[in-house]
Amino acid sequence: MGPLLMLFAIYTAIFLIGMFMMKAGFYALSGHRLKRWLMRFTAAPWQGFLTGMAATALVQSSSAVMVMTIGLVATGYLSFRQSIGIILGSNIGSTVTTELMTLDIGDGAIPLLIGGALLVFIGRRRFVYSIGMIAVGLAALLFAMNGFSSLAKPLADYPLVDAWLKQTNSSTAIGLFVGIALTALVHSSAATIGIAMGFLHEQLLTLPAAIAILLGANIGTCITGLLASIGSSKEAQLTAYTHLWLNVAGVAVFAFWTEPFARFAAMLSPAPDVQLAHVSVLFNTICSAAALPFVGIIETAILRLHGQKRA
C-alpha cells in the first residue's frame, strides 16, 4: 500500500502546484487591480457580492480572496459589513475551479503543458507569461485528476480503504468529517473535491457520499481565513468568523438533502464528476443568493455572537 499512498501524495502535490500556478497566472493578469476592485466596488452588499465572485473566479482561489479581504479589513480599507458581500460572492466564484476540473480534453493535457511551458520561458510580456502559467497549471490539474481516478480502484482493494468507503457511503456525517479534515489538512477544497471525483468516477463512492464530502470541504476551507485572522483586528476576526458560520449554516441545511440533490444532479449530466461539480455550483449559489438580502441581520448576529456591540 506504501507505493500507492506515495503516488497519491504525488498526485495531490501536482494538483496543488497546478492550482498555485493557475492562481499565480490569473493574479498576474489582474495585478494590484484586484485589491483596488475589492476596495472600490464594495459599497453596497450586492456590489461586494459581484466583486467577490469575479475576484475569486479570476484568481481561482476563494482562500486567496478571503486572506486578501481579511487583510484589507484589518488595515481599515474595508469594513466588516463590506466583507460579508465579498464572502458570499467568493463562495460562488470558487465553483469555477470545480467545473474546470471536469474538462475532458483526452491527450490534450500534454500539448497544453508543453505549450504553456514555452510561453512561460520565452514570454517577455506579462500577458504571455500569465497565459503560460494558467495553461501549465490547468494541465497539471487535469493530469492529477486522471491520477486520482487511476489510483481509486487499487486503493479500494485494501481493507482499510474499502472499510472507509463503505462507511462514507452509508453515513453523511462521516462524509462531512472527511471533507472537513482533508480540506483543513491540504488547505484546498478543490483538492478534496478532486479526490472525491476520482473515487466517484470509478463508482467507489456514491454521489450522495461525494456531496457530503463536498459540503464538508466548504467548512474545511474556512481554516485558512481563521488562521489569517489570528492577531488581526477585531473586525478582521469577525470576517473570518462570518465565513465560517455562513458555510456551517449552509451545510447544516443541505446535509439533510444529499439524496434529493443527487437525484436532481443526475438529471443534469450522465458523468458523475460533472454532476458533483454542478452540485457545488447549485449549493453555493443557493446559499449565497438566499443570504445576500440579509447582510444587515447577519452582521448583527455575528456581532452579538462574538461579543461586540454594533457601532
Rank of each mutant, 00 (worst) to 15 (best):
Q275L: 03
A266N: 03
L282Q: 01
P260C: 09
F256I: 02
A252F: 13
F261R: 01
A255R: 06
A277L: 08
G250M: 08
A266W: 00
A266I: 00
A255K: 03
F264T: 13
C287Q: 11
A266V: 00
V253N: 08
G250S: 14
L292M: 05
A262W: 05
V248F: 14
V253Y: 12
W257S: 12
I298F: 08
L282W: 13
V251L: 11
V248Q: 10
F283P: 06
S288F: 01
A290K: 02
N284D: 03
A265P: 11
L292T: 09
W257M: 13
E299V: 14
A289G: 07
A290I: 13
H278W: 04
T300E: 11
I286E: 02
F294E: 02
L276D: 10
F261N: 05
L268C: 12
W257F: 15
T300K: 14
I298G: 10
V253T: 12
F283A: 02
L276A: 11
T300P: 00
R263V: 02
G296Y: 07
E299R: 14
P270G: 04
R263C: 01
V295N: 10
P260T: 09
A291H: 06
M267Q: 15
V281M: 07
L276S: 09
F294I: 08
V251K: 04
A249Y: 08
T285C: 05
P272H: 01
G250Q: 06
T300F: 00
A271R: 11
S280C: 12
A289L: 15
A255C: 14
A290L: 15
F256P: 09
A290P: 01
V248P: 13
V248C: 14
V281T: 11
S288V: 04
A291R: 07
A265K: 02
P293D: 03
P270H: 05
L292N: 07
S288W: 00
P293H: 03
P260A: 09
G296W: 10
F254V: 06
T300L: 08
L276I: 08
P293T: 04
F256W: 15
S280W: 02
